[in-house]
């Protein structure tokens, strides 16, 4: 799937594009780590580490600004075309989405002190697995971007259903808890928001998958899938 059989005649152009990809990778690593840490803190009630998750979000914000600056420079100085242009625009959009994913981690971390340690309720045990799938999606889709791998992006796209299923199951359980005992409502509401945040991470990974697919192929993924479903796809 890699279109770049050869580098640019102008080597510095390759360096610029590689630098953009590296920035996205770096942002992805930070965002994945932030989500995983936030969930670990939730499990272990590690309030100090939760504070760190919150503080670390500033790094992602800074990297997003750096990515934007470099992407604009590449557009202005190199006038990228076709696949290169799609890549640069994708980097610009993806960095904004990854920054949002970081915000979700921060949001989860902020809720941890508000949860009462003594009042564990069941869906908590599902969260790590749900978060694991969502962060894996983020990891894989950003790898797909760096590798310009449209197939890998599509596989991530298809995995979002698992995260949604987790969310629906957690939602129903929490609702039951709330109805059974109104003392649980505060606790359950926080957990519900946390589950929702993880679900949004999955959605964002899916959006990135669409961006990666378009950057790599020039075709929109939903159009592609619709075509296959109508049996019109060329083999």
């Amino acid at each position: 799937m890699n279109e770049e059989t050869t580098g640019h005649t102008l080597k510095a152009f390759d360096d610029d594009l590689n630098r953009l990809r590296a920035l996205i990778s770096q942002m992805g690593g930070l965002a994945e780590h932030a989500i995983r840490e936030a969930i670990r803190c939730l499990q272990t009630r590690d309030l100090d580490a939760a504070k760190e998750v919150i503080a670390n979000d500033a790094k992602l914000d800074a990297l997003e600004i750096e990515t934007e600056k470099r992407a604009i420079q590449v557009i202005a100085l190199r006038a990228p075309m076709a696949g290169d242009l799609r890549d640069v625009v994708a980097a610009l959009k993806i960095s904004a989405v990854v920054e949002r994913i970081g915000d979700y981690a921060k949001n989860i971390a902020k809720r941890i002190p508000k949860l009462e340690a003594s009042r564990d309720i069941e869906p908590l045990s599902l969260m790590p697995e749900m978060a694991r799938i969502a962060t894996e999606m983020v990891h894989d889709v950003l790898n797909a971007f760096v590798e310009r791998d449209a197939e890998a992006a599509m596989r991530v796209y298809e995995r979002d259903q698992a995260v949604d299923d987790f969310y629906n199951s957690i939602f129903r359980t929490l609702l039951t808890h709330m109805m059974e005992n109104q003392h649980n409502i505060g606790q359950a509401a926080h957990l519900l928001f946390i589950a929702k945040n993880i679900e949004r991470v999955g959605d964002h990974a899916t959006n990135i998958a669409e961006m990666v697919y378009y950057a790599a192929t020039g075709e929109h993924l939903p159009d592609r899938i619709a075509k296959v479903e109508e049996g019109e796809a060329d083999n």
């Binding site: 799937m1 279109e3 449209a150 197939e151 599509m154 697919y213 790599a216 192929t217 020039g218 075709e219 592609r224 899938i225 296959v228 796809a233 060329d234 083999n235």
Partner: peptide, 12 residues
């Protein structure tokens, strides 16, 4: 090859 994964990216 699974047709959904046969992207048009392959420029011949």
């Amino acid at each position: 090859m699974n047709d959904i994964t046969t992207t048009k990216a392959e420029k011949v």
